[in-house]
Every structure is written in C-alpha cells, then in structure tokens.
Amino acid sequence: MWSEPTPKWRTARKQYQCQGNGCAKVIASGEQYLDRALNQPAQSHLRYCKECAEPVAEGAAAYHFFSRSDFPDRYAQRISSTEWKSLRREIIEQRGNRCELCGHEGGSLVLHHLHYKSMGNEQPEDVQLLCSTCHEPADEKRVEARLRPVLPRNYGTGWTSELDQQLKSRWEAGASSEELALEFGRTKSSITLRLAKLGLQVHEPLSKLDET
C-alpha cells in the first residue's frame, strides 16, 4: 500500500488518451505528460496532459510518503498527536457525536482520512467521523479507489449509426485500432469487435488486444 511509484514527467512516444477526470484530450507523440505507474493492477499506468497534471503533481508531492518506509511511524505519530485529538473534538462539535455513515451515536468514534494528501495539516473536509464498524470498510474503499483502473471515457456506451460511419471512415483512411481507441474513447478490443460487426477486415488478432 505504501509503495506506489512517484508520478514522473515523460515524453510521449505515441498517442495517449488523457485520463484526467472528464478530459477528452489526446496526448500527441512528442508531448510532455505526467505518467503515474501503478503496482496494482500490475504494469498499468495513468497518464495526464499538462493541464490535468498540475493537481496530480501537487498531490504526488503530498503522497511521496507512499514510497517511504517511514510512513507507518509518521502516521502513528500523527494520530497520537495533540493536534489530531483537537481536530477530532472540533469535528464532534461541528457534526455531532455520531458516525457519519451509519449514524451510530457515541462509542469509540475515530477520525478517518478521506485521503492522505494533507496529512499533518488536515482540514475538516479531509476527514470523516466513523464508528469502528464503518472505519475498516472505509479504509478498504479508499485503497480500492486509488488502485481502480481508469476506463476509457465511452466505456460501456452504445454505438450509433453516426459513430459507425465515423469509425468506418477513419479505418478506411488507415487509422489503427489503437488510434481509434483513443479517438473514440473505447478499448482496442471494443474497436476491433465493432469493425468486425461492420464487415471490415481486422488486421490485428484479438489475442493481442486488451480485454478491459
């Protein structure tokens, strides 16, 4: 959990779809982009254009401890500090002495980090007040959210006759399935299957295409 590689600036050797939230930009070959490699799923990457990279890079500076072995000690020091206990009292005064997820009142309520970007300088919006029953699942959900692969922007959406015509035209113009996947916001396997359905010859075997 604490060994995610630090994002790095790279020069694109081919086109990539920016994976910033809601961004439709295609990172062209030769452009600078921010590459965030993930340990899980293995060999996966998140790539961001320059505009989307700024908040990611800022967050990475705060997340640098994920690659440091001293994180457990720093975390333990933080949650046992006077400042952390004061923040807990402040949250209870603001939100009441109850779990923010299930509504359980009293008991041993703990502060839960929604993220670790601001660890050491947490603000009320960075934490939740949770009971022990809700705390562990919330921790697991936070980890899953960080590791979840980003799907193409049009993943799971249907094809229209207009999109079919655009796809056919681009394919006949010589675009590769990888280029089309970026342009149409789909996986390569989705592009290949759609081309086959349109009766177009597919030059790349399905076994070599991603199946996500």
Rank of each mutant, 00 (worst) to 15 (best):
P5D: 09
T6Q: 15
P7N: 06
P7F: 10
K8A: 15
K8E: 14
A12V: 07
A12C: 04
K14R: 10
K14I: 08
K14C: 05
Q15F: 09
Q15H: 07
Y16T: 00
Q17D: 07
Q17S: 15
Q19Y: 04
Q19E: 14
G20M: 02
N21H: 08
N21K: 08
N21M: 05
G22P: 07
G22Q: 01
C23N: 02
A24Y: 12
K25M: 07
V26D: 02
G30N: 00
Q32Y: 11
Y33K: 00
L34S: 03
L34R: 02
D35A: 09
R36A: 15
A37M: 13
A37Y: 11
A37D: 10
L38S: 04
L38M: 15
L38I: 07
L38F: 14
L38D: 15
N39F: 12
Q40S: 13
Q40E: 13
P41G: 04
P41Q: 02
A42I: 07
Q43M: 12
Q43A: 11
S44W: 14
S44P: 08
H45E: 12
R47T: 08
Y48K: 04
C49A: 04
C49P: 02
C49T: 04
A53F: 05
E54I: 08
P55H: 02
P55L: 05
P55W: 10
E58G: 13
E58H: 11
G59W: 12
G59E: 14
A61L: 11
A61Q: 14
A62S: 14
A62K: 07
Y63L: 07
Y63V: 00
H64W: 14
H64N: 12
F65T: 10
F65L: 15
F66H: 14
F66Y: 14
S67Y: 06
S67A: 09
S67K: 03
R68E: 15
F71Q: 03
F71G: 04
F71Y: 15
R74S: 06
A76C: 00
A76D: 03
R78V: 03
I79H: 01
I79V: 08
S80K: 05
S80D: 14
S81T: 09
S81A: 07
T82N: 12
T82W: 12
E83Y: 09
E83I: 05
W84A: 03
W84E: 12
K85S: 05
S86Q: 15
R88N: 14
R88T: 12
R89P: 08
I91M: 13
I92N: 02
Q94L: 13
Q94P: 00
N97A: 01
L101W: 12
L101C: 08
L101D: 14
L101N: 10
G103M: 08
G103Q: 03
G103A: 05
H104I: 10
G106I: 09
G107C: 07
S108E: 15
L111A: 00
L111N: 00
L111H: 05
L114D: 00
L114M: 00
H115D: 07
Y116A: 01
Y116I: 03
